[in-house]
């Protein structure tokens, strides 16, 4: 059994709803988890500026958890830690029931990533899992987690290398399995960490824009990172965001909304 703490991050309109949603997803009772409030959210004013609550559930005693999902997890790592990887919606790896196609897709994704890393002379451990769809129109996403030492070279400047690896792997994977499969590659939890940083950056920059009334232009970022900024400030009452410039130097600008009088 893994000794890593099992956690799940949830976003919902209120903390109470988030807890209920998380417990429901995990199939646990409230006394079986600890709740960490990451962002209490805010109701906003007249429906403006409301921000969703974000919480993290820590499962206290994995062994005591007796739910069907974990039964089926025997062959897979018994970890339900959320790896959001540049998404704003709560996700967790699929519980148990993977069909044959999904198992094939996971094995293939792992094999391709392994092949590429080996030919790049990088040693790493890999683990592929399925992230469930984030909404009804979405499909499950393959998550390949790369673990190892000295892998900063694999992230690269502005995560250029990681994105290239992810892009090439998803192209080869889609070709091999015969249909498009969304795929995310993460190194040592980098994407989740980076997403948190970007959200903080977005909120701080927005505050500054409101305070000074001046536009802020952020550093150039890849598309998936710009998306985090746009999403974080999408419902902001006073600022709006826009990407300007050409790849790979496209940047997010944050500026005051024009108020209609």
């Amino acid at each position: 059994m893994s000794h890593e703490k099992t956690t799940l991050e949830i976003i919902a309109p209120t903390v109470e709803e988030a807890v209920a949603k998380g417990l429901n997803q995990l199939g646990l009772r409230e006394e079986e988890v600890e709740v960490e409030v990451l962002d209490a959210g805010s109701r906003g004013f007249l429906g403006l500026g409301s921000r969703q609550a974000r919480i993290r559930l820590w499962i206290k005693e994995k062994e005591s958890v007796q739910t069907a999902p974990l039964e089926n997890e025997k062959k897979r790592p018994a970890k339900i830690e959320r790896k959001p990887a540049l998404s704003t919606n709560p996700t967790q790896p699929t519980e148990g029931t993977l069909d044959r196609d999904e198992k094939f897709v996971l094995a293939t994704a792992e094999q391709i990533t392994g092949e590429l890393l080996q030919k790049m002379h990088l040693k790493a451990r890999l683990k592929a899992s399925m992230l469930p769809p984030q909404d009804e129109n979405d499909q499950p996403t393959v998550m390949v987690e790369v673990q190892g030492e000295d892998l900063s070279i694999l992230i690269g400047r502005r995560s250029e290398t990681l994105n290239a690896l992810q892009y090439i792997t998803s192209l080869i994977l889609s070709k091999e399995v015969g249909h498009w499969v969304p795929l995310i590659i993460d190194v040592q939890g980098y994407r989740a960490r980076r997403e948190r940083q970007l959200r903080v950056l977005a909120r701080r920059s927005a505050e500054q824009v409101v305070h000074t009334g001046r536009k802020i232009t952020l550093e150039p970022m890849p598309a998936n990172e710009r998306r985090v900024i746009h999403l974080e400030l999408r419902d902001h009452p006073e600022v709006t965001t826009e990407s300007v410039g050409e790849e790979p130097n496209r940047k997010v600008t944050i500026f005051l909304k024009k108020h209609h009088s």
Partner: peptide, 20 residues
């Protein structure tokens, strides 16, 4: 599209080369 695949290959090649 816009050389995206070839450029991604170049990025990975650069790492492979750097490792040598």
């Amino acid at each position: 599209k816009s050389g995206r695949v070839a450029n991604a290959m170049r990025v990975l090649l650069r790492v492979a080369a750097a490792r040598e």
